[in-house]
Nucleic acid binder design. Structure first.
Lengths: 332, 332
DNA sequence: TTGAAAGCGCTAACAA
DNA sequence: TTGTTAGCGCTTTCAA
């Protein structure tokens, strides 16, 4: 592609004028503008953002670290943030970490080499790698350090709400199927669930842990392995996809939902509406999460000091047909 | 972050040597190497990829245009391509087009300004915008021009296979729920479906068109609006999500699947396994599609002339419980 | 085996 | 209102 010098030459003016034209800085006569427009048109020129970045010492690129772009929750977050960052003229570099430390560290190096303006680290497996870099970083879910901003749903209260909803629906023998321990989000859901159960002396509670997050192929055998799963009258599953697998398994076992066993998931994935019965779940406020994350990032990039470091957004119970309880919210 | 000069200074050597060190070009004594390693360590330096790109006149960035990252089919494609491009040391810039012409054109400008090495244009709404740019572009699904490479599933044969599978399962009154006409993929599926149906004189065939691709909220009313949907003993839906909505609607209407009506979707999304009954569908070979797209892109970037412009990959029928037919493939 | 210097495309200070 | 010029961080040639 042409460069600024060729444009200037063709337009018969100096490069500074062309530069001013593109940056809206300083005066450019209408006459010059017209000449430039013509030259740009003829040579199909677009200013080189790399050269500009190198001079300005900042890019308009945000690095997005994401465990896996096929995960419905995370890809919705990305979709939301992409939209908002674009509005601020930022471009997104996408990095799939697969929850793998080494991949993530490699990606960090790449993002550093491109001198990105900021990084959103979603569910990082290697918080220490972010601690000493001179780029604004926002942690989503898994924390980086007390000095770094963390954004997440209030998974703790979400877990409480899930228990309460099942309890209110009449469940007294409740199973929580927990996600991998490395995900703070899932341990918080567990914590909330347990905490809420302590207040109800007549409820029996069990927990079983899964070590995979959402790959159906590994989920199925793990769930089929849970013994006595038919003993429970309520099951809180750590995410919607796993809940769907649980529902399917129970169906195969001849268990009626919600009459015999009530099920509540987490995430409010589009999946839940399509299942039969439709799945009660805990909604994560994705739009708000995306909004707050991008807003904070922009402020960080602008050099603002931000005192509040932790942002835990309210979840909501979405009542559908897999449970019997009334609509509750996680407010209380 | 430090620059190459500071590293050279701290190491007590010249910048050219540092450059050679990082680029493995030319000689660097072990002694110098050690000094550089130390300086890099101390200053936590990473070479500036922007400056490098500006000099080399090429970046290691690929622009990915995608209708919507929350669409399971496309995000799987992105996941696959990201992995493969990374292996070749390429970084991905993600652009959500929302099937919107203007957004897409704006993204093209951004990608051009970053002088990306190549663009994968998935389901483009504005093929003309790619025709005259001096960057390698590969079209996925919707074509750009006869001179540009196009990669896609063989949707035509996939549509044929869907009809055949329903017909072989005993269906004689078959409905095709078609996706938006602007998506070549869906019109090809329709074309294949119709073509296959012509060979079977005893089969009655209808088509109804939907104008939304996969947003459940708009899908539901559209599908509920289809009149006489219970008249059909077989329905071929243009994608799995819409098929799920159809199944749900039929269920609400008291129609038994597959006994009364058989359903086949398209995409082989993870969703299909979770539904009850599980959904028969047409698999798109995502891994191969990703592989061939990235391979072709790398070759294009390397300046290779590629004679074959069109790549339509074979689909496969995935037989599950929503149909009665035997396993068929789209080979024939 | 090394370093000085030119140049990649751009911005901005400054003089005109 | 404009153009010259230095310099952003880097690579590479070329002479040492």
């Amino acid at each position: 592609m042409a460069n600024i010098r060729e444009i200037a030459k063709r337009a018969g003016i100096g490069i500074a004028t062309v530069s001013r034209y593109f940056n809206d800085s300083g005066y450019v006569s209408e006459e010059s503008r017209e000449k430039i427009r013509k030259a740009v048109e003829e040579l199909d020129y677009t200013p080189n953002a790399l050269a500009r970045a190198i001079f300005k010492k900042n890019t308009k690129i945000i690095g997005l670290m994401i465990p896996n772009i096929t995960n419905p929750f995370f890809n919705q977050m990305v979709s939301e943030m992409e939209k908002l960052f674009r509005k601020q003229n930022y471009t997104i570099i996408l990095c799939n970490t697969d929850d793998d430390k080494e991949k993530e560290q490699f990606h960090i190096e790449t993002l550093r080499s491109y001198r990105v303006a900021g990084i959103v680290a979603m569910r990082t497996m290697t918080p220490e790698s972010y601690r000493n870099i001179d780029i604004p970083v926002i942690a989503f879910e898994n924390q980086i350090s007390p000095e770094h901003i963390t954004v997440a749903s209030d998974n703790y209260k979400g877990g409480m709400a899930a228990f309460k909803h099942l309890y209110d629906g009449g469940c007294r023998k409740i199973l929580h199927i927990q996600g991998p321990e490395v995900f703070i989000a899932t341990t918080e859901r567990l914590r909330g669930f347990i905490e809420a159960s302590k207040k109800k002396k007549d409820a029996l509670v069990d927990v079983v842990k899964l070590e995979t997050d959402f790959h159906i192929k590994s989920l199925e055998p793990a769930i089929e392995n849970i013994k006595n799963i038919t003993d429970y009258d309520g099951i809180f599953v750590f995410n919607d996809i796993s809940a769907a697998v649980v529902m399917k398994h129970l169906h195969d076992l001849g268990v009626r939902i919600p009459e015999q066993t009530q099920i509540i998931g987490f995430d409010n994935s589009f999946l839940g509406e399509l299942l039969l019965p439709s799945l009660t779940t805990i909604d994560q406020p994705i739009k708000q999460l995306g909004k707050i994350t991008t807003d904070l990032m922009i402020r960080l990039i602008n050099g603002e000091e931000i005192d509040q470091k932790e942002y835990y957004l309210k979840t909501t119970v979405i009542k559908r047909s897999s449970t019997l309880g009334k609509i509750a919210t996680s407010k209380e």
